[in-house]
Design a binder for these strands. Structure first.
Lengths: 219, 219
DNA sequence: AAAATAGTGTCTGTTAGACATTATCGG
DNA sequence: CCGATAATGTCTAACAGACACTATTTT
C-alpha cells in the first residue's frame, strides 16, 4: 500500500450562547504555540486512539475546554491547506454549537470567555473565516428552522422564543406572524404551566423534539 | 511540540451531469484495495506536497479521474471515523460537482461510468451516505438558487432551464411562475440570439454570473 | 394551414404583515 | 382602576399557481 504524508487533523468549534438576552460566543485563550496567549476558537487535534469519529472529537474537545456537553452540535465546514497553520499542512473540521445560558458555567478565571457576537476581535489562523461562516449559518438556518430554540432553557414563553429569534437573526419580527408560523410548524408544545412577568401570565412551552426541525418551505 | 498519530485524509466527490436530459452521477471503478474492482465515488488521498488546499485536492482528483475541470464544485461534508475505512482511522472531505453534458468526455472504456441518479447501486465505504447527502443538498439548494444552471451549456433557453430544474428537483413547475421567478432573481441574462426547435424560436440566455446565486427568500 | 414551441395575460385563493382588540395578571 | 404583558382577531396588499390566450416559427 502506498504511503502519503498526512496533514494534521483538528477540530474547532464556535460555541454560541445567550448572555443577558444577547448572542455571545465562547472564545478560549491559547495555552501553547502558535499564537500562545491569544484568543481563538476552542480546538484540538483529532485523537485517533480516543475519538470514535469526528463529531466525538468535537464533543470531547468542547468537554475538555468548557466542561459541558453541548445540546446542539453541527458540522460547519472543513478548512484545509498548506498555509492555514504556520507549522505545516493542516485541516480543521469546524463545528458550531448552541448551549443555553444556564448550562454554561460562569467563567471565573476559566480558560474561556464570552464575547458578544457583534464584537468578535480578530482571531488567529483562519478563525475569522470560521467565525463569519458560523454566524452566517446560524443566522441563515434560524430563519427557517427551530435552531434558536436550542439557546433557551427547558421551558420558555413564546415571547422569549421570539426574542431569541430576533436576537439571532438581528431583525424584529411581527408578533402575530411569528406565532402563526411557530404554531403551524409544530416546533414547540405547551407544557400546561404558565409564568407571569408583571402582566398576564404566559403559557410555557418546550421544544417538541430534541432534533432540529426545518420549516416547510413553499419555494 | 506534541505529536499525534494522524488520520488518513482524502477527498471524494459526487460529480453530476445531464445525459439525455436526465440527472446522472459519475462513478469510478476502484483500481486498488480495498473494494478493488467495485464501483465507488471517485476519490484520492490529499497530497500535501502537491495540493495547496482541500478544494485544489478535489479538483486535481477529478482532473486525474475524469479529465475535466469542473465549473461548479462545493464542499459537502466531512466524514471521519475509525471504521469508515477498513484499514485505519480516516477522514474524507466530500464534495459535489456539476458539469454540463458536453464537457464530460464519453466514457469509452474509460475508468468511470455514468449512472442515473435514481438508480445508484450500493457503494463501498460510507459512499452511500455521501451520495444521499449530495443528492439531498443538490435538490434542496436547487429550489432556491441558480445551481441547476451549471448543468447547462454556455447558452440555453428558458424551457431548457425549466426542464433541468424539474429534472433535479423531481417535480413539475408551473411555467408562468418559473419564468417570473427566474426573471426577478436575475440569475440569467438574454444573449440576444434565438434558437428554434420546431416552433417559435426561443430567446437564448446565459448565466449572468459564474458564481451561484441564491434567491431572495421572504422567510 | 397545421403543428409545435415560446411567451404573456388574467383570475382567484392564500397569506404575510400591519394594526387593533381582547384577555389576564399584579399592584 | 391602571399598567403591563399575553394572546387573538381583522383587514389589505401582494403573490403563487391555474389556466387560457397570443405569438412566431417550421413543415
Amino acid at each position: 500500500m502506498e504511503e502519503f504524508a498526512r496533514p494534521d487533523a483538528m477540530v474547532d468549534a464556535a460555541l454560541f450562547t445567550l448572555r443577558d438576552g444577547a448572542l455571545h460566543v465562547v472564545l478560549a485563550r491559547r495555552d501553547r504555540e502558535p499564537y500562545q496567549g491569544q484568543i481563538a476558537l476552542p480546538g484540538a487535534y483529532v485523537h485517533i486512539d480516543e475519538d470514535e469519529n469526528l463529531e466525538a472529537a468535537a464533543r470531547r474537545m468542547l468537554r475538555e475546554k468548557t466542561g459541558i456537553e453541548v445540546p446542539y452540535l453541527e458540522q460547519l465546514y472543513t478548512f484545509g491547506g498548506r498555509l492555514r497553520d504556520p507549522r505545516r499542512w493542516s485541516l480543521s473540521v469546524a463545528y458550531y454549537a448552541l448551549v443555553p445560558e444556564a448550562q454554561l458555567p460562569v467563567p471565573e478565571g476559566a480558560a474561556f470567555q464570552l464575547v458578544p457576537a457583534d464584537r468578535i476581535p480578530a482571531l488567529p489562523f483562519d478563525h475569522d473565516e470560521m467565525m463569519a461562516m458560523a454566524l452566517r449559518r446560524l443566522r441563515g438556518k434560524s430563519s427557517y428552522s427551530s435552531l434558536p430554540a436550542f439557546l433557551l432553557p427547558e421551558t420558555f414563553t413564546l415571547s422569549e422564543l421570539q426574542s431569541v429569534y430576533e436576537q439571532v437573526i438581528g431583525t424584529e419580527l411581527p408578533k402575530a406572524t411569528f406565532r402563526r408560523r411557530i404554531e403551524e410548524q409544530g416546533i414547540v408544545e405547551p407544557t400546561g404551566e404558565t409564568r407571569s412577568d408583571g402582566g398576564r401570565p404566559a403559557q410555557l412551552y418546550r421544544r417538541s423534539a430534541d432534533t432540529l426541525k426545518e420549516f416547510d418551505r413553499t419555494i
